[in-house]
Simulated scan of single mutants.
Amino acid sequence: MGPPGCGKTTVATLLSRCSDFKLVKISHMIKEEVESGDKWRAKTIMSFTQGFRRLCPNEIVLNLLKEVFYTTCNDSVGYILDGFPIDLDQAKQFEFEITKVFMIIYPTLSLNSFVMRYRPQMTEAELEEAKEKHIERSKLCQNVYRHYEQKTLKCNSLHPIDSILNELVLDLDRYFGYKFRFISDTTKTSNTRNVHYEMRCSASSSPLAQCNIRE
């Protein structure tokens, strides 16, 4: 989880690529549902989200997650949910209806850093709207963090991505028992270091495999 622009999708994608965990991008999941051809469901979602400018209701998100879990759980040792939870109510509903929250990775990004990073890419009007969204989401994330502090790994998204992931790998092993192998390719492409992490985690040892979706 994290505010807009903090790098949570980058972290989630890299972790999933080097593991057997299934990556579920919440925004893509909602978009695919809108474009699926089911006009009634698409109309319902769009009426709530107003073109994705507002948050999709928890009931819709959780129902879509249930469908993903039901159809893929036999072939998955666990899941990485990108952009979830948005708020504390969503996390609690997830635990009540699906399964418990095992851990949360929380990349942080201050408002000033967000503005410096994205000002060149936005108009002033777009930036003001984005700042309001960033403030709102940051407050929601802090509520989640306070409730799940013992299950949360925080990282500063201003640090280089290889440094962030290296620290996450160490902490995931130290505090949660997930075993990663760090492979660093020092060859630079477009001034970016290629960094790979390989998760070695069997279904029997992974708490994320213990997923019993509640009816």
Results as ranks from 00 to 15, higher is better:
Glu126Asp: 12
Asn143Phe: 08
Arg119Gly: 00
His134Gly: 14
Lys151Trp: 09
Glu129Trp: 05
Asn74Asp: 15
Arg119Lys: 15
Asn63Gln: 06
Gly83Ala: 11
Pro107Met: 13
Leu81Glu: 03
Thr123Asp: 03
Glu95Phe: 14
Met116Ala: 14
Thr108Leu: 14
Asp87His: 08
Thr99His: 12
Ser138Leu: 11
Lys151Ser: 14
Ile98Arg: 06
Phe84Ser: 13
Tyr148Asp: 09
His134Asp: 04
Lys92Phe: 01
Phe102Glu: 15
Ile80Gly: 06
Val144Arg: 04
Lys66Gly: 10
Pro85Thr: 02
Val115Trp: 01
Ser113Met: 03
Ala125Asp: 14
Lys66His: 13
Val68Pro: 08
Gly83Val: 02
Arg117Asn: 06
Thr99Leu: 11
Gln142Arg: 14
Lys92Tyr: 03
Val115Glu: 15
Ser138Asp: 10
His147Phe: 04
Lys66Ile: 03
Phe96Gly: 01
Gln121Trp: 06
Ser113Val: 01
Arg146Asp: 15
Val115Leu: 06
Lys139Phe: 12
Val115Arg: 07
Asn143Asp: 10
Lys92Thr: 05
Leu81Asp: 02
Ala91Ser: 06
Asp75Ala: 15
Phe102Leu: 14
Asn63His: 01
Ser138Pro: 12
Gln90Arg: 03
Pro120Val: 09
Ile80Asp: 00
Thr123Leu: 06
Glu132Val: 02
Leu109Asp: 10
Lys66Trp: 11
Leu62Glu: 06
Leu65Ala: 12
Tyr145Met: 14
Gln121Leu: 12
Ala125Trp: 05
Glu124Gln: 04
Lys131Thr: 05
Leu81Asn: 01
Ser138His: 05
Ile135Val: 15
Phe69Asp: 11
Arg119Pro: 00
Leu111His: 04
Thr123Cys: 06
Glu97Leu: 10
Thr72His: 02
Asp87Arg: 10
Arg137Gly: 02
Ser113Phe: 00
Glu126Lys: 07
Phe69Pro: 09
Gln142Met: 15
Pro120Glu: 13
Phe114Asp: 12
Arg137Lys: 09
His134Ala: 08
Lys133Ala: 01
Tyr106Lys: 08
Ala130Lys: 10
Ala91Thr: 04
Tyr148Cys: 11
Glu95His: 01
Gln121Glu: 11
Leu127Arg: 02
Val101Pro: 09
Lys100Phe: 03
Arg146Gln: 13
Asn63Cys: 05
Asn74Pro: 00
Cys141Val: 05
Asp75Ser: 15
Asp82Phe: 11
Leu62Met: 08
Met103Glu: 07
Ile135Asp: 05
Leu140Thr: 03
Val68Glu: 15
Cys73Lys: 15
Ala130Thr: 09
Leu62Ala: 07
Gln150Arg: 11
Tyr106Ala: 02
Glu95Gln: 06
Gln90Tyr: 02
Thr152Ala: 05
Val115Cys: 12
Glu136Asp: 08
Arg146Asn: 07
Leu111Glu: 15
Met116Phe: 05
Ile135Pro: 03
Gln121His: 08
Ile86Ser: 11
Val115Asp: 06
Glu97Cys: 07
Val68Thr: 13
Glu132Leu: 09
Gln121Arg: 01
Phe69Ala: 10
Ser138Arg: 02
Asp82Gln: 03
Ile80Thr: 00
Glu124Met: 07
Leu81Phe: 13
Glu95Arg: 09
Ser110Cys: 12
Leu62Asp: 04
Phe84Trp: 03
Leu64Gln: 08
Pro85Ser: 01
Ser76Leu: 01
Arg146Pro: 01
Gln142Glu: 15
Met116Trp: 02
Gln93Trp: 04
Lys131Ser: 11
Thr108Asp: 04
Gln90Pro: 02
Thr71Asn: 14
Met116Cys: 14
Tyr118Pro: 09
Lys131Leu: 04
Asn74Tyr: 09
